[in-house]
Amino acid sequence: MRKEYDLQTDVLATIVATTPVTKKHADLLTAFATRTDYRGARYVMTRDEFGERPARVLTADGREIAADYRAWIDAQLAAHSGSVRAVWLAHKDAGYQLTEIQPVLHYFVHDRGGDQDNFVQLAVWEEQEFVERELFPRDDRWGLPNADELRSGSTGMALIERSERRTLGAPRYRLKDAIDMQQFTAIGNAAYKAHRHTEGERRLTETDGATGAQRIVTLRELTPGYDQVRWPERRFFDDWTASSAGLAGERACLRWTFNTSDYTDPSDVRYLSFVPQWAHTRKIAELTNTGKLDLYSLYGKLKQLDERVGMPFAWYFYGLHGNLVKSGQMERVLEAAEDGLIVLPEHDYQVLRRWHQVPYGF
C-alpha cells in the first residue's frame, strides 16, 4: 500500500522507466524538469553496495524461457513435488542460463526551500541485466542447493558452468520511491508523540525495597526527563536549522539522503524512522585513536572534517550518524567548551549541549 508521504504515481514511474540512462543523469533531470512537478530536482548521490538478484531464464542460445526467475522456479518445484533433485534432473543438461540484475541506487532531491525538511526525495534504481553462468550445475558431486537457496538464485555458483559476464541491453531506470519528507516527518513525529504519551501513562507497581510498601506510578513518573525525549528524526532537522550549518544556508537534503522505514507492529503501533546517509564524495577517514590526543588536536581534526565536507559544524551530524565521529569525541568537545578551553559559536554550543542532555543518534 502506498503511504501518505509517497508521491510515486504510475505516470512518474513510467517517465522514469522510459528515460534512457545517460551521463550524469542529464536526460532524467531534463525529464524531471519538463514532465513532472519536480522541476528543480538535483542529483545528490549514488549507493552501489547492493548485490545482484536473479531476473530471467534463457536457453543456451538466448531465447527467453521465463521473464521472472522466482516465479518459474516456484512452478518447477511445485511440478516436481518440491524436490530440488527432481528439478535438477529435469533441466541439468538443458544449458539454461540465469540472467541477473546489478542494481545501483541514485538519489535526487527537489528542494522546495524554507524548512529543512521541505523537500521531495526521489530514489531511482539503475539496473543492468547480465548473464555469466548456467542455471544448474552439470553434476551433483558437490551437492545441490536446498529449495530456499534455489529460489534465491544461489544454485551452487562455484560448481556451475561459467563464462565471461555478458551484459544484456542497456541499463534501465526504475523508480523506487518519491518521498515528501515534510509529510514523512510530520506523520512520524505525531506517531512518536502518541506512542510515547501512551507509554508514559502506563501504570506500574513500585515496591519499596526496605519496607515492602507498594504504590502505583506511571512510567513517566519513574523516568526522569521522560517528556524531554523527542523523535530523533525531528531533532536532526531542528538541530540543522539551529546550527552553523543551517545558519550558513546549507540544505540538509543536499548533504544527506535518508533511508526511511515505516513499520506497524502486531499491536498496531506505527513506527517511522530514517537513517541519514552522507552524500560527500571526497574520502573522509574515521577519527580513530583520538583518546591520546589533547583537546586542541581533537578539535582540530573535527574542524578538518568540516573543511573536507565543505560546511561548518558538519562533524556534529557525522557524530549523530556515528561511523566517522564517535559520541565520546563529541562529549570531549562539549567539556572543553564548558571549561573555556575552546570556543564554539553559541548556537552550536547550545545544539551540542541539548544533545548531551538527551542524547540521540542513528
Rank of each mutant, 00 (worst) to 15 (best):
Y318W: 15
R141A: 09
V309I: 13
G212L: 09
I284P: 09
R56N: 08
N259F: 08
E206K: 15
W278F: 12
S81L: 04
P20I: 02
R85F: 05
F32N: 05
I179E: 01
I65E: 09
E233N: 13
L334E: 07
A158L: 14
L298Y: 09
A33W: 01
T207H: 10
A178P: 11
N189G: 15
H356L: 01
L298G: 08
R270C: 02
D74Q: 14
S273T: 13
L204E: 11
A79W: 00
A31E: 02
Y316V: 10
L305D: 02
W142G: 03
E4M: 02
V124K: 07
H280G: 11
M45N: 15
V131E: 04
D117G: 09
H110D: 15
R215C: 09
M1I: 07
R215Q: 15
F237M: 03
Y226L: 06
G113N: 06
D115I: 01
G300Y: 08
V109C: 11
P54F: 03
L298K: 09
T167C: 06
R56H: 10
D48I: 02
A213F: 07
Q183L: 10
D115E: 14
D227Q: 10
T290Y: 14
D265M: 05
D265Y: 05
I187L: 13
Q214P: 05
Q97I: 08
A71K: 15
W355C: 04
Y5K: 02
D180A: 07
N118T: 10
R203T: 12
I101A: 02
T99A: 10
Q76F: 00
M311Y: 11
A337E: 08
I65S: 04
D268F: 11
N118Y: 08
D10H: 11
A17P: 06
T257F: 08
W231H: 13
